[in-house]
Design a binder for these strands. Structure first.
Length: 509
RNA sequence: GCGGCAAUAGCUCAGUUGGUAGAGCGUCGGCUUCCCAAGCCGAAGGUCGCGGGUUCGAACCCCGUUUACCGCUCCA
């Protein structure tokens, strides 16, 4: 593991040094858990997205894509459960390291006071028997009154603090009441903080009554709210899918491990709509299908594993993760969830619009069930990069750092190199650039010894280097040097387009 | 968020008891070179993460802060 940690550090350095990933706003000391993709990073990332899109949309007649806006009507997040699930003020006990809802701690305290009152009432009831007037007792007994006043004061203050989001006063209240942690028994509390994972902003004029809107925390809802639009205009018949690639935003409390958990990230999602009752069959289908997709990236199977969820989210009736063996261990790369009809039904309720599908074969209408495949673009990028990064010791004792990125995903596909910069070789090389650059990302380089140029291309994962030599001038053939084996083929210039079509294509195509 | 550790050139790092910053690699401009880094000449690039404090003087000591990594915690 220590070895992996070192390797991971070198990978991060390499990603920066060769223009794949930069810390965001680096000249201002960076912004936590936000990263920018550099000149090679963006090529790799685009290639990943294009490949996914082809595999999901182009190769499936019953799957279509959309590109929904990042801003959505705030009611969307009410319906999806995101607003309610994450709007609670939390407080941590520093000794037990346990986290509590601040309002729950206070309410527990109130409950204790109510217990005291109830005990007083019970005692009095026993003592006075039938003559006991409960109403009169609780309005006159000094101990009851005292506690009741306390309760009223506390709940009034708590509710005010909650509505005004006055977290400082919530903490003050907890401290004044002497509330202790049930686990550690200490009063060593942190500040009260709100842990809504959604970023918010205002739309329109920034005035007091401006509408609060959120940056979407997942792309899925953009698909659900467009279900009927796509189904009707696309004449889609169940089962069918809607795919989307886009940015999502989560205000993570702890965001770490390079680009693994970022606050701004990109998802590739496909929501597959099926008949109720058939969702688990399709869940299994996509579980298999998606695993095959990962293997088509040329990464060994032992780098992947499934992790079935035992505790299911509120919307799911089956869920599994495809985990990848990152340098910091097996972590989630893709989630496959059977989301039932939770989302569509919720939107139906909140919007008041009927969201059903008429199934001509069954001759009935229903709210479709959904099987989701949701994969992180950035995590896929990191998986491919970490599997590709290799430090080699060559036979002559020299070292080579090479990114063995599958050719069809590599940022630069072909480098064109005149062996020396004279005898018409640069000119010939530039002609070859013109021949290939419309189909492939190519790079021309004439600086330094050719061996050094090969190493530079190895470092960014370029699968093929074309070298123009004396023989090229004589017979219009070039050498094609392979990144992985370092071996060379001699190929006629006229044959190059066909040669690369054969060599640079997806593994499973 | 808590705890630990760190931040000096694009990368990896050195920098003595506090006395105005160096190396290797890389990059750039040349030369040489007919096939796998480390040949030759030259050059650029750093107010030592940021802000305060102590001091005659701070990369170095102190405080704060930001960022990264590790552990814990969290993860609809």
């Amino acid at each position: 593991m220590a070895n992996n940690e070192e390797m991971f550090k070198r990978l991060i350095s390499h990603a920066k040094e060769y223009g794949f990933i930069f810390p965001s706003s680096e000249i201002y000391d960076g912004l936590a858990a936000v990263y920018d993709y550099g000149q090679y990073g963006v090529e790799l990332k685009n290639n990943i997205k294009n490949y996914w899109w082809k595999c999901m949309v182009q190769y499936h007649e019953n799957i279509v894509g959309i590109d929904a806006a990042i801003f959505m009507h705030p009611a969307t997040w009410k319906a999806s459960g995101h607003v309610d699930a994450f709007s609670d003020p939390m407080i941590d006990n520093k000794d037990s390291k346990k986290r509590y809802r601040a309002d729950v701690l206070i309410e527990d305290h109130i409950a204790k006071l109510e217990d005291k009152i109830n005990k007083e009432v019970e005692k009095a009831e026993k003592r006075f028997g039938d003559t006991f007037d409960k109403q009169q007792f609780i309005t006159t007994n000094p101990r009851v009154l005292e506690n009741q006043t306390k309760i009223n004061e506390i709940s009034k203050r708590m509710n005010e603090a909650l509505t005004q989001e006055n977290f400082a006063d919530l903490k003050a209240l907890i401290e004044e009441l002497g509330i202790v942690c049930p686990v550690s028994g200490s009063r060593n509390w942190t500040e009260v903080r709100q842990f809504n994972l959604m970023f918010s902003t205002q739309m329109g004029s920034v005035s007091a009554d401006a509408n609060l809107i959120y940056l979407r925390p997942e792309t899925a809802q953009g698909i659900f709210v467009n279900f009927l639009n796509v189904q009707k205009t696309g004449r889609m018949k169940i089962p069918f899918g809607i795919a989307q690639i886009g940015k999502a935003f989560r205000n993570e409390i702890v965001a770490r491990q390079f680009i693994f958990r970022m606050r701004e990230f990109e998802q590739m999602e496909m929501q597959f709509f099926v008949r109720p009752g058939e969702e688990l069959k399709w869940f299994e289908y996509w579980k298999e299908k998606r695993k095959k997709w990962h293997l088509s990236l040329g990464i060994p199977e032992n780098k992947y594993r499934y992790h079935d969820h035992e505790k299911l989210a509120h919307y799911a009736n089956a869920a599994t993760d495809i985990e990848f063996d990152f340098p910091f261990g097996f972590k989630e790369l893709e989630g496959i969830h059977s989301r039932t009809d939770f989302d569509l039904s919720a939107h139906q309720e909140h919007s008041g619009k009927k969201i059903t599908y008429f199934d001509p074969e069954l001759n009935e209408s229903y709210v479709p069930y959904v099987v989701e495949t949701s994969i992180g673009v950035d995590r896929t990028f990191l998986a491919i990069l970490s599997a590709a990064y290799q430090e080699e010791k060559l036979a002559d004792g020299s070292e080579r750092i090479v990114l063995r990125i599958p050719a069809f995903l590599a940022p630069v596909k072909i480098a064109v190199l005149p062996l020396v910069k004279k005898d018409g070789m640069p000119e010939k090389a530039l002609e070859i650039m013109d021949l290939l650059k419309y189909d492939y990302m190519c790079q021309y380089d004439e600086k330094d010894a050719v061996g050094r140029r090969y190493r530079r291309q190895d470092a960014i994962g370029t699968p093929y280097c074309i070298t123009v030599d004396n023989q090229t001038i004589e017979d219009n053939t070039v050498t094609v040097r392979h990144r992985d084996t370092m071996e060379q083929d001699r190929v006629a210039i006229a044959e190059l387009p066909a040669y690369f079509i054969k060599h640079i294509k997806p593994i499973n195509e």
